[in-house]
Design a binder for these strands. Structure first.
Lengths: 201, 201
DNA sequence: CTAGATTTTTAGAGTTACTCTATTTATACT
DNA sequence: AGTATAAATAGAGTAACTCTAAAAATCTAG
């Protein structure tokens, strides 16, 4: 059935990546709002229709992250009985290596996401997905339900911390280690004791 | 100069409120995305151009909240030397009375803001304003700077808690007291001890 | 290798939110 | 009452999307 990864499938991935590259280049040169889909399509040598085959909307071309599945995997399918602190450390390591491997593109996308109001609003949506993921992890660690208010609130605090950390990183021009900011943010909210408190209820 | 509040000004407020009312009625009946500006304008008996005089974009008609200034006032200009817990309690009281006074309209708007993806993303933007406000309050109470990472992270946690609390409230169909949810959320993150920790640095 | 099935790309027409400019109408001030 | 100012409107234009139908590329079986 599937030939290792489907030749067709791989080609599609390449096209998608090419569109994103072309778009980001244009955004960097002339700004997000000033760049039209028409221009992106021309630069990527595809039709406008094809653009919308790959990305549901203009914003998606910035949001789309090929590494997301990898990070998701690390978080969702780690052993659920290891201490939370350890799982988080693993996550931070994964993040660090991803950021290192593709620093420039990630920075450009992060910068856009934070600076273009429209995109910033959208970025929040992504955070809600992250919150749900964290919630399910905390839930499985504490024997609570992921849908309970206090579990969600704690996850939200974590995700908010991550958001602020990335703002800090972008502010610093992508220099320095985002993971350090993240660690500091997690400290500031006392994340681990929040989770412990959940456990005892 | 200004005749008590400017007849012109009051008329504008009325028009704005009328447009919002017409829009919300249509949104409730046929959904947000299914309602066009043309329809709203017709229902409010104004031209499309006028709609855009009052609201920069369609989303604003849901986001716009006449009570915001009041809440802002309570938060920003309270005495900066009273204990934080007391300021927060004051805020919760203000919120409670606002919610009671205009329950239905507020509920409808909250429901829309959380259910329409486009609006939900926008709602986040509002939360960032709230975060900044909280940051400046915490800053003035702790002698820290509102722009520091840990101060922002703590404020973000608070705002995230408020967001989750309002989700809970909407989920419950607007029944029950949102302020109770909020209190519980603030407890869950250990907000007050977070702020104390900021103080001691 | 060829024919048919399937998937991908494309063209093009239509909708809607929003912008801009210019004109008309309503309100306030002397 | 007449003039300055502000608000409402018409109308033309742009760009992001949606939908439909057809063309082109790719895969699969015989």
């Amino acid at each position: 059935m599937t030939t290792v990864a489907g030749l067709r499938e791989r080609k599609k991935q390449k096209t998608k990546a090419a569109i994103q590259r072309a778009a980001l280049r244009l955004f960097k040169r002339q700004g997000y709002e000033e760049t039209t889909i028409e221009q992106i399509a021309a630069a990527a040598e595809i039709s406008e229709s094809t653009f919308f085959n790959y990305f549901r909307e203009k914003e998606d071309v910035v949001i789309y992250d090929e590494y997301d599945p990898q990070i998701f995997e690390t978080l969702a399918h780690g052993p659920h009985d290891e201490p939370l602190r350890k799982s988080i450390e693993k996550l931070l390591d994964t993040l660090a290596s991803v950021f290192e491997a593709d620093h420039d593109a990630i920075y450009e996308r992060a910068k856009l996401s934070l600076e273009v109001p429209e995109l910033r609003a959208h970025a929040w949506e992504e955070l809600e997905k992250a919150r749900d993921l964290i919630s399910s992890i905390i839930a499985s660690r504490t024997g609570r339900d992921a849908s309970e208010l206090d579990v969600r609130v704690v996850s939200m605090a974590f995700v908010g911390a991550a958001f602020e950390a990335s703002i800090e990183w972008v502010k610093a021009g992508g220099k320095g280690n985002i993971v350090d900011h993240l660690r500091m943010a997690i400290e500031a909210i006392g994340f681990y004791s929040m989770v412990e408190r959940l456990q005892s209820v």
